[in-house]
Amino acid sequence: MTASQLLAAARLLLDRAGVAVGWRAVAVAALARQALETAIDDLWGREAAGTEQASRHTQLLCLPSYADEAIAELAASTWVSLSGACHVRAYDLAPSADELSRWLSDTGTVIAGLALTTESCR
């Protein structure tokens, strides 16, 4: 699945559920994170092959060197937020529908941004 398809799937799941409860919220977050990672992997494939093998932390540190800085920053913070939501912790609450919705829209922005950056670089 492409990054956009994964994001669409996450949106669908969130819209169906209406209210994000428990596993459904985790599933939405996981799908979105996968979409984000796919978009980044796509970038590496075109720009710096092999980077996708490195840790995500390293990848996010490298991202500003290959993409628009604002997009790279948004990608990093959204990834951190989505990763947090993927792990259900006893002391933490599940993300709200509002929050999930905002992260999905941020993910969309990052996917579009990364694609645009690559095109303009070419």
Partner: peptide
């Protein structure tokens, strides 16, 4: 340092 130490990362990067 994190980037430099990542063994999976291509040298060019």
């Amino acid at each position: 340092r994190d980037v430099a130490r990542d063994k999976q990362l291509p040298d060019a990067v």
